[in-house]
Lab assay of single mutants.
Amino acid sequence: RKEMTAACTPRRRIINLTSVLSLQEEINEQGHEVLREMLHNHSFVGCVNPQWALAQHQTKLYLLNTTKLSEELFYQILIYDFANFGVLRLSEPAPLFDLAMLALDSPESGWTEEDGPKEGLAEYIVEFLKKKAEMLADYFSLEIDEEGNLIGLPLLIDNYVPPLEGLPIFILRLATEVNWDEEKECFESLSKECAMFYSIRKQYISEESTLSGQQSEVPGSIPNSWKWTVEHIVYKALRSHILPPKHFTEDGNILQLANLPDLYKVFERC
C-alpha cells in the first residue's frame, strides 16, 4: 500500500510523520478485503446518474454509490500519497476573496446577518489561508500566491479535474471546517474536505460537464463527458487505489441488486 500512486510524480518523498502513518493504519484496520476484491475485478455496466452506477462482479449485479466511493478513493490517495502530488495549474489565478464571496452568497454556506458582513468574512478567509499557504503547498500541492490567488490544485489521478463549480464552497470550508490546531486532526479533516471537493457530486455535474483533463479519443470531437470520466478514470482507479471500509457493506453505498443465475431462471419461465 505504501507504493500506491494514482498520479505520476517525478520522485517520491518518504513521509514518516506519526500522524500520517496513524491515518494510514486506520484505513488498513477499517478495510474490507472482500469489497476490495469485488472492486478490483468488477465489470463496469454503466452510470445511472452522477451519484449511482451499476457494476457486475462474477454472477452478481451491484449498485454502487459513485459519490461515496470516489470520496473515499480521493481521501485514501491523499493519505497514502501525502506530500507526493503533482499540481493542476489553473488556467488563470482565482482570487480567494472572490471565491469566498461566491460561497457566502450560496445558501449552502449557511451565512446569516449575525455572522457579520460577507466582505469582512471573505477578507478573513483570504488572510487565514495565506498564512497556511506554505503547508498547503508542501503537503497538498494546493498553491496560493502572495496576492491571495489560488493558482494550483493537487493532481490526485492523472487526467482528472475536480468539478470546479464546487471550488468556492471548498475554499470556505478549508477556513471553517478544518481542525487547524492538532496535526493528525488537521491532516485528516483537510484531506476529507479535499476528497469531498474532488468527489463526483450530482449538484455540480450536468450532462455537459467534463471532468477530464483530456479530449476524447476521436479527433475533432467534444470533450469527454462526465460519464466517460466516471467509467474510464474514476472506476479504473477504484480497481487498484481503494481499500473500501467495512461500513460500506452496511450503509447502502454498495448494494447487491441481483444474482444473475437467479434472473436467468426467471427469464426461462417467461
Rank of each mutant, 00 (worst) to 15 (best):
R1K: 05
K2R: 10
R13F: 15
T18F: 15
S19Q: 05
L21G: 04
L21E: 05
Q24R: 04
Q24F: 13
E25K: 04
I27A: 13
V34Q: 07
E37D: 09
L39M: 08
L39I: 11
H40F: 11
N41E: 09
F44S: 04
V45R: 02
G46W: 01
G46L: 02
V48Y: 13
N49L: 12
L54D: 00
L54T: 06
A55C: 06
Q56P: 00
H57R: 14
T59Q: 04
Y62C: 15
L64I: 08
L64N: 03
L64R: 00
T66E: 00
T67Y: 14
T67N: 10
E71V: 07
I77G: 13
Y80M: 02
F82I: 01
A83G: 08
A83H: 08
N84W: 14
F85Q: 04
F85A: 10
F85S: 11
G86C: 12
G86R: 10
R89T: 10
L90Q: 00
E92T: 08
P93K: 02
P95S: 04
F97L: 02
L102I: 05
A103F: 15
L104M: 01
L104I: 02
S106G: 08
E108N: 03
T112P: 15
E113Y: 14
E113W: 15
E114L: 13
P117L: 15
P117S: 15
K118P: 15
K118Q: 14
K118C: 15
E119M: 11
L121R: 01
Y124W: 02
V126A: 08
E127A: 03
F128H: 02
L129D: 00
L129H: 10
K130P: 02
K131H: 09
L136M: 10
L136I: 07
L136E: 01
D138Q: 03
D138E: 13
D138R: 02
F140M: 09
F140L: 06
S141C: 09
E143G: 05
E147L: 08
G148A: 04
I151Y: 06
I151D: 11
I151T: 06
G152Y: 03
P154W: 00
L155G: 03
L156F: 10
V161P: 07
L167P: 00
I169D: 15
I171S: 01
L172Y: 02
L174K: 00
A175P: 02
E177T: 03
N179Y: 06
E185N: 04
C186E: 03
E188T: 09
S191C: 03
K192M: 10
K192G: 11
E193K: 02
C194S: 08
F197W: 03
R201G: 13
Q203E: 12
S206I: 07
L211F: 07
L211T: 06
Q215R: 08
V218K: 04
V218N: 05
G220M: 11
G220Y: 11
S221W: 11
S221M: 11
I222P: 10
I222M: 07
N224A: 09
K227Y: 05
K227H: 04
T229A: 08
T229H: 10
H232M: 10
Y235G: 12
K236G: 10
S240A: 07
S240G: 08
H241G: 12
H241V: 11
I242A: 13
I242K: 12
K246L: 13
F248K: 14
E250H: 13
N253A: 06
I254P: 03
L260A: 03
P261N: 07
K265H: 08
F267M: 11
E268R: 10
E268S: 12
